[in-house]
């Protein structure tokens, strides 16, 4: 099982905070977004790897084909700033 958590505008736009996925469905980081978009409501915002900062087991990856294995936790985040 792979745990996928969303944050930032991805979470508020998709309406999904977290979900589990089978490791057979989700093999790469890019697959996580496909899974998210399928799961979210038809009129929810859809997201892609290109616009996100992705962390696998608390380490950032910038490769869309980064391999995900069973037991991994993936965070889908958006850039943020403030003061």
């Amino acid at each position: 099982m792979i745990k996928i958590k969303t944050f930032g505008v991805i979470r508020l736009g998709s309406g999904i905070k977290e979900f589990d996925a089978e490791s057979s469905q989700v093999r790469t980081v890019e697959d996580c977004f496909n899974a998210l978009n399928i799961k979210s409501a038809p009129d929810a915002d859809k997201f892609s790897f290109a616009e996100a900062q992705v962390f696998v087991n608390h380490t950032r990856t910038t490769k869309k084909n980064f391999a995900i294995k069973d037991g991994d936790e993936v965070w889908l985040m958006s850039p943020a700033s403030g003061g």
């Binding site: 930032g8 505008v9 943020a80 403030g82 003061g83």
Partner: peptide, 9 residues
């Protein structure tokens, strides 16, 4: 999210 959106990052 406001500046509050920074907690998660």
């Amino acid at each position: 999210l406001g500046t509050a959106g920074l907690v998660s990052p």
